[in-house]
Design a protein around this nucleic acid. Structure first.
Lengths: 144, 144
DNA sequence: ATAGATGCAAATCGTTTGCACATGC
DNA sequence: GCATGTGCAAACGATTTGCATCTAT
């Protein structure tokens, strides 16, 4: 059995309040983007999100999608994940958690709970073996 | 005191043997690139390495630098580090270790020893505080 | 001679930017 | 009415690619 199989049920968060709480002004396009993005926990690239928005029938320019995702990331609404140099993933789940990345399939999967790498090794997704563990601790200067 | 201060003394590895061992054919340009890259443990971008090579007086095209770094990474001679979407770092130390990244200064620093995130928090670089921990476990499909 | 490497410039592709127009307190 | 967003297209920058040339075995 694999404790990573079940995802959290999609939290029906109040998106309006969440955006206000993070200091993001609410506009029509941002609301459309947020609705798609927070519909469920997911990992998307800006380009994928642009397509998803288009499928809803709404029209938001690609530049606005990029700019809005960048804004959301700066404000802490979403997390940026750097898996490879070619594209940035945005994770609509901004709580503290980590990821499995299948280098063969490109699947990006949440690691449930905060597990030390030692324990993660015993709990990999079905049919996969460990390749590499990439851990980057981002630090910031302490302001005087 | 910070146990991350001292770097390993540069190992004077036999580059020729190392390349052969990893199945990389030896050519003049690859040798020039490897000499610069393995001179000391370091994190460089392709562009930085291109400049470093130029400073030695040797002439290697930028495309060859990119292609060679990609080859080295595929063959396991160097490790790719994805810090942000704008550039790929190459780590000439391919042994298993992790990194501090200072989001203010752009410094990329080896984490000495394999530490669980919990302990890393108590051992940050001078004058910094923890921002975010990014852990990606790369897995691959088990071949049938 | 033959496969594999290299160099160069052009192409690619994700992302950012400049600027005119629109929107909402 | 003014500050803030948005859309569009052009600009940008890192990386890749096509292809002709070179280099070793």
């Amino acid at each position: 059995m694999n404790s990573n199989e079940q995802q959290q049920p999609p939290q029906k968060r109040n998106i309006t309040q969440m955006m206000i709480a993070h200091g993001v002004n609410l506009t029509k396009q941002r609301r459309i983007i947020a609705d798609v993005l927070f519909e469920r926990n997911q990992h998307v690239t800006a380009d994928q999100l642009f397509d998803l928005v288009k499928q809803t029938g709404s029209r938001v320019s690609k530049a606005t999608v990029y700019n809005t995702l960048g804004l959301f990331a700066r404000k802490g609404l979403v997390r940026e994940i750097f898996i490879d140099a070619s594209r940035t993933f945005y994770d609509s789940n901004n709580s503290h958690h980590h990821h499995f990345y299948n280098v063969d399939t490109g699947d990006l999967i949440d690691i449930k709970d905060r597990l030390a790498p030692h324990f993660i090794a015993q709990d990999l997704p079905e049919g996969t073996s460990m390749d590499v563990v990439d851990l980057v601790v981002r630090v910031k200067n302490i302001k005087p």
